[in-house]
Every structure is written in structure tokens, then in C-alpha cells.
Design a protein around this nucleic acid. Structure first.
Lengths: 110, 110
DNA sequence: GTGGCATACTTTGACAATCTAGGTATCAGG
DNA sequence: CCTGATACCTAGATTGTCAAAGTATGCCAC
């Protein structure tokens, strides 16, 4: 127990991936690093969570993928947010905000 | 789609139940109503989610249950937060706060 | 040059939590 | 008497995450 890393709640991962990609095209492994870095090491996405999620998200048309070689000379699969994906990110952020608000209301109760 | 009710994320339900019970002993059906009311109708807990959750929570010793008759003359199973449950509520609230903070950090990124 | 580590992707199976959808029973109001 | 709200319970399906494998490459230290 006593984890310093917050566990992900189901449903938040898609939003985080989309957000990471909204900052620019990126490959899978890089998405993990970007999320970890942006969250000040608080969020750690497992590879076994990420890749299936990316597959799901691609099937839904929220991202498009292509294989490419990056500056280091290594091959990687680069993901890019589609227009639909950008819309979806907005939706998920709004829905997250609603949830956070709703839970805050419950917690305010005395 | 386009739900006005926020969907619960896995892991938040326990916290909501514990919070509802922290305001006083209550029976299952009442917990649903209290959460709905406190959240301004934003959160709707399904019975099929609540009762298994209550069972889980009771097994863990976070609440104690007893059958009783309330003023309306009807029988109901009343749940009460235990000392351990109160501790657990604090833990879950802290962990929720951490997650909300971490996600906020990611979302701040430009 | 080779051993180990970080990078990079994939798949499998287990697990946990929620929801849908059904069921039972009581009580109040029209 | 019939409906709807109250009150509880359960089975089954679904979903998302995680742990734990495996593969392969490039780089650096020794």
C-alpha cells in the first residue's frame, strides 16, 4: 500500500492520452513519458495499459497512427490526434470536470 | 450518449458511500438518495452497483450493518461507519485529491 | 565484444468494479 | 386494485487496467 503514485481510475486514461497527443504527435512510449513528466511523476501509465488503449482509441478514430523513424534512428509508431479526437478530448475534459464538481459537492456536505 | 449524469469512475463509489455514511447512519436505498441529493442530481448510483459495494465494504470492516425499523414503519438495513471506515474515507479522499491534482497538472500543459 | 539498461512494441490472462436487467416484497395514494 | 416509490438482492455481461510475459534495437561501460 502507501503508494506515492496515484492509481489511474478507469476512464481517465483515454483523456490523458488524448491530452498528451494534443501537444503534438508522439509515439507510444513517449506518451507514457510525457504523462509522467507533466504530472510531476504522479501518474505512471503501464505499457500493458497504454498499448491496448491506443488500439481502442485508434479504432474509434480519435488518433491516426503511422510508423516512422525518429531523429535517434529508431523506428516507432507515431500517433496523431484527429479532428474527431480533439472533439473527444473536449468532451472527456468536460465530463471529468462535471465529475470532479459533483464529488466536491458531496464532500462539502457536513 | 450525451449523458447529463456523470458516470461514476471505478474506485469513486466507495468514497461516496463512506462519505454519505459519515453524515450519519443510513440504509442502502437512502445512501443512493443522499448521494444524488448532495451532488445536485449529478451522481446517480445504481442499485446494482450499490448493494455489492456495500457488501464489499462491510467485509472490509469499514461499515457495520444491522436491520432496523425506521420511523415510517418499514424495515431496512442500516449501515454505520466504523472507526476503520472513517480512516479509510480519509485515505480515499487524499488519494482522490492527488489524482485530481495530477490530472490538472497534465491538463495545464500547453 | 558483450553485458546490461533504456527504449519501443505486443500479447496474454487475471482481476475488479460497474451496469443492465431481472427478481422479491412492502406501503401509500388515487 | 393498481401503480409507483421504497427497499433489498443477485446473475451475467462488459469494460478497463494491470502484471507479467515476450521480442527487438541501440547505446554505453567495461
Amino acid at each position: 500500500m502507501a503508494k506515492n503514485k496515484a492509481e489511474l481510475l478507469q476512464g481517465t486514461l483515454d483523456m490523458l492520452i488524448l491530452k498528451a497527443l494534443s501537444l503534438g504527435e508522439l509515439h507510444g512510449y513517449g506518451i507514457i513519458q510525457r504523462i509522467r513528466q507533466l504530472s510531476d511523476e504522479m501518474l505512471n501509465v503501464e505499457q500493458g495499459s497504454l498499448y491496448p488503449a491506443l488500439y481502442r482509441i485508434e479504432q474509434k478514430g480519435w488518433v491516426s497512427a503511422r510508423w516512422d523513424v525518429h531523429e535517434t534512428g529508431r523506428e516507432a509508431k507515431f500517433y496523431k490526434l484527429t479532428r474527431v479526437g480533439r472533439k473527444q478530448l473536449e468532451t472527456e475534459e468536460a465530463s471529468w470536470d462535471r465529475l470532479v464538481l459533483a464529488i466536491a459537492k458531496v464532500r462539502q456536505a457536513t
